[in-house]
């Protein structure tokens, strides 16, 4: 799938196009609409819509290129592992390996796969824990972390070694996941934005965020190397790297 994103330069362009259209036109329009039309609920609605806009191009591009069976299976397996992985840590409550697995997925299969694995696992885990207004926020956070991991590694800005990856994972969990989710909780609970309120949310969530950071760090430190080997083996053994032979219809 890495090879695919390379060969599909055109596709990348298309995504950039859709994304820039959204960023330059739709997002400002949403903000203007929110400020003038919805006075009370503007923060929540604007943020929610921005999140949705960011995710849409990924989903659209993925659907557009009619992914092959193997790719679908790999993404599903990784997302399911991220959701089910919690069971492996039944002896450590609150220990969540999701971010770590999403990062590994991004590193091995590229940013797009990383995003999808993250977003899907965020969505599906809420089928088990209950959907709520937080669902899009979680999808977005997990997805964007996977995307970043993939892109940074592809650009050579992030090493595939376990220590830098673990540090990246810890930072991403604290800043991206913690940062965005807490902002989301603030918007969800109170329509009225204040900086002190935001600070209070960050401070009160900090202990839990720290546990999350630690679990991401630990899992990446211990698992990233063996798991990447396992994924590489799968790629080679089952020809995920070379494109599947086209079937005549």
């Amino acid at each position: 799938m890495q090879a695919k994103s390379k060969s599909g330069g055109k596709r990348l362009n298309k995504r950039t196009l859709v994304a820039s259209a959204l960023i330059l036109l739709v997002i400002p329009a949403t903000i203007v609409f929110g400020i003038f039309v919805l006075n009370d609920r503007k923060y929540y609605l604007i943020s929610l819509l921005i999140i949705v806009y960011t995710m849409l191009p990924f989903f659209m591009v993925f659907e557009k290129r009619k992914p092959q069976a193997r790719e679908i299976v790999v993404i599903s397996v990784l997302a399911a592992l991220a959701v089910a992985g919690r069971v492996a840590f039944f002896m450590l409550p609150q220990f969540k390996p999701v971010v770590a697995l999403v990062i590994i997925a991004g590193v091995c299969f590229g940013g797009e796969a990383g995003f999808l694995v993250g977003a899907v696992s965020g969505f599906v885990s809420n089928f088990f824990f209950g959907q709520g207004p937080w669902t899009p926020w979680q999808m977005f956070c997990f997805g964007i972390i996977g995307f970043l991991a993939g892109v940074l590694v592809q650009k050579g800005w992030l090493s595939r070694n376990r220590v830098p990856l673990s540090i990246f994972g810890a930072l991403a969990t604290l800043l991206i996941y913690g940062g965005i989710i807490n902002l989301g909780s603030l918007f969800m609970t109170t329509p009225h934005f204040t900086w002190q309120g935001l600070l209070a949310f960050y401070v009160s969530a900090f202990p839990m965020d720290l546990v999350h950071v630690a679990s991401t760090f630990a899992v990446l430190l211990l698992l990233s190397k063996p798991m990447m080997e396992k994924l590489e083996r799968i790629k080679i053994k089952y020809g995920l790297i070379e494109p599947e032979p086209e079937q005549a219809l």
Partner: peptide, 13 residues
């Protein structure tokens, strides 16, 4: 494709 993924993840979990 995504809804198939969804169905498969729900099967795998």
């Amino acid at each position: 494709a995504l809804s198939l993924i969804l169905s498969m993840v729900l099967r795998f979990v």
